[in-house]
Design a protein around this nucleic acid. Structure first.
Lengths: 202, 202
DNA sequence: ATAATTTCGTAACTAACGGTACGATATGAG
DNA sequence: CTCATATCGTACCGTTAGTTACGAAATTAT
């Protein structure tokens, strides 16, 4: 329930804009790393006091979990949609690569992937966020597996590799690409590695 | 100069064993993550006082840099040796995979790769260690590139991909494998992904 | 022995950061 | 107008971890 205004009339009206804070926090974590951005920094950026932020999200962990939910909706969802689309396998691969190497700067989107970053810092996250990271990871792998199984049954999948391993392979390619992008390696080069990696499938 | 005892006679004899501390620190960082293990924890494990450790390594950053040097010598060196060996390309690939998926537990070696972990936490490391991580990364990429160039000129390299991208691809495969291993994914499955990934080369 | 020298380790310092106590403030209800 | 209610934000707390001040201890040179 992102912005369900239950409009409780009583008491001092809330000035904190949950969605605005979430968006700022998302950008901060995405850009600076989920474990490197301090709560107080987000408070300054969003121009809210620490107690206000804690009132809304409960804790550091709560804020990060909420941010990850937003990220999942904004980024992971569209990515999964490619895997479940009705296009042909080869076109899906092309779409996945295009999605991954799209120019972020011109779109005002940070480089890299927050989910990948959170996985790298899994042990430094709170319980709620950490579990959510695990769930999303599993979910992504399941999407890959279903996608690959479908391609196999359609005869579009040319490689001889178990589905589970193939899904992990896909995930590793994507993770590697996101890491490279974050390091500043040109999308052109990243695209070459992805194209090569997925050329084994179709 | 790891253990060059210059034997300075004067003063209280040193009880701190640099190499022993380094080995313990290496295991701690490798197992628990380079940014999650506190100096005081290593002091307890090695049974040395904090000032003793600081006297020897200067700082957190200095200790980590020394540990990374040791890791480079123990692990990265042998890995690079495979890339410069005189074996055939296909056998080198096989050796790389075998090296990566060797059973760590039975050898008493921690899972994953310290260099990969340090790259993931690059921003949390000190200046000296951070720069060393970058240097080792570049070095590894250069080894891959030379290896690939050699295979290309021998006609053993079958894929149509620029050398730079191919090197990054290799590095991404290895990094992905190390990350999976750290997560507890069976080496059997990891081997399937690596075999598939490198099957595109030879 | 005594002095010079070098290392040892306890105990404290410091900075950063997650989290909160509490009084002020703003609104609706009576 | 006054009370109940809910949010606001300053200032503070507590923990953790890197770092160091300093006096004790151990050894060689004179």
């Amino acid at each position: 329930m992102p912005t369900l205004k239950t409009t409780p009339k009583r008491g001092r009206p809330q000035t904190l804009d949950r969605d605005a804070v979430l968006k700022i926090a998302l950008t901060s974590y995405w850009t600076g790393g989920p474990t490197r951005v301090a709560i107080s920094h987000i408070c300054k950026e969003a121009d809210v006091s620490k107690p206000s932020l804690y009132r809304e999200f409960g804790s550091d962990d709560g804020l990060k979990a909420a941010v990850l939910d937003l990220y999942s909706e904004l980024v992971l969802g569209p990515f999964h949609n490619i895997l479940t689309s009705n296009e042909g396998f080869a076109q899906q691969i092309e779409a996945l690569i295009a999605f991954t190497v799209q120019d972020r700067k011109s779109l005002g989107i940070p480089s890299g992937c927050l989910q990948v970053a959170m996985r790298a810092h899994r042990e430094d996250l709170g319980e709620v966020t950490g579990n959510k990271v695990d769930m999303l990871r599993s979910q992504t792998l399941r999407y890959y597996e279903a996608w690959i199984e479908r391609a196999k049954s359609c005869g579009e999948f040319k490689a001889d590799i178990p589905t589970q391993a193939a899904a992990l392979f896909c995930d590793a390619q994507n993770g590697g690409a996101m890491r490279m992008q974050k390091e500043g390696i040109p999308n052109e080069i990243i695209k070459q590695t992805l194209t090569h990696a997925f050329s084994t499938f179709a």
